[in-house]
Design a protein around this nucleic acid. Structure first.
Lengths: 191, 191
DNA sequence: CGGTCTCTTGACGGAGTTCAAAGCTAGTGG
DNA sequence: CCACTAGCTTTGAACTCCGTCAAGAGACCG
């Protein structure tokens, strides 16, 4: 089915994965249309999602009713609300497809069974979370160390193609600024 | 020596750890004085640090020369710059003792050996990073969803005793505000 | 085409910063 | 045990980044 996950596991573990065929059954593929939700606020995050193709985002709705995007998930990334997923408690987040996407869903119980049966994969998920943790540390540094304007220019410099790929209001939402201000920043740069 | 780590591993793994005595040699204890550095910008983060007692903080120095605290590490927490630690590359952070502290140092090579010899501990570190990842997701949500003033009051509500424990300029640095503004917020609340 | 969703523009206001200076606290050495 | 100093906290005035509101111009889809 999807060799992308196999390749990802092999890359992180640094070895061939001969038993991939036998673990494939734990991952349920799903195709998502644009704006389709994988998780809704108040529901339990039932699965850990691996992005095969497309783009997901995680967001919450603040008290003014505005959506704040906290994370994007592109190819090769695992995405879930890990507080909700780990404890199987209601989530405060949404997870939604930004564009038509394909994911592999690893439900909470499937993950537990998988790891019991193939303890070697603990190492894989340890590395996945360790990387995500490192990425969060970097993210928080960037958030603290820069003005909103610098955040925008930094993001454009780092991910120029991604900026083309998503609508601007989503980018604004991710950067924690209003679409109006983002528009102003763009205009300023043209002069 | 320190049964705190043993207890923590047992808690996360949900089982007794009969072989703790034999793995203890991988962890090097260290006592730190106030303001002593475990990691300095430009150096490689050589170890993963488990806080046995006291309090650490991670910070960086922004382009204006101001220290920005991104993380505190209290008892039971593991702390490291995981980008630097994983890849053994120079770090952009400092790690420093806020008060006299005791830590266990697990060097990069020691961790690799430890995990090779006791693969069961992969699960432990997977859970540690998964929790940290969940905490980062929550942290980013709080950072995006609240004004600086709300951040302060939220923090005081959540960790009233910790607020007493650290100087205010560190708290300001962690909340991403100036000490002057923090002072104003405190004064406002007294009236 | 018609309507809804997205992007732009501009005026105004406020949360939070910067700078400067003075008061306070705590650690240190004599 | 006191005195001195360096570092921490407070106060206030000027300033700025960025949000809010309102209105219009495109753009995309049925």
């Amino acid at each position: 089915m999807s060799l992308i996950l196999k390749a990802h596991i092999e890359k992180l573990l640094g070895m061939e994965l001969p038993f991939y065929d036998t673990i494939e059954k734990y991952f349920v593929p799903a195709a998502l249309r644009k704006k389709e939700n994988l998780l809704t606020e108040g529901k339990i995050c039932k699965a850990n999602y691996f992005v095969v193709a497309g783009c997901l985002r995680m967001f919450f709705v603040n008290e003014k009713g505005v959506e704040q995007t906290t994370q994007f998930g592109l190819e090769h990334w695992w995405l879930a609300d890990y507080s909700s997923f780990s404890l199987q408690r209601p989530s405060e987040f949404f997870i939604q497809a930004v564009e038509p996407s394909q994911v592999l869903c690893l439900s909470h119980s499937a993950q537990e069974e998988l790891l019991l049966e193939y303890p070697r994969l603990e190492r894989y998920f340890r590395l996945v979370h360790q990387r995500a943790h490192a990425a969060s540390q970097f993210r928080i540094k960037v958030l603290y160390g820069n003005s909103r304007e610098e955040l925008y220019h930094g993001f454009v410099r780092l991910y120029p193609d991604f900026v083309q790929r998503v609508p601007q209001y989503l980018l604004a939402s991710y950067l924690g600024i209003t679409p109006e201000y983002l528009s102003e920043l763009r205009a300023r740069r043209l002069s």
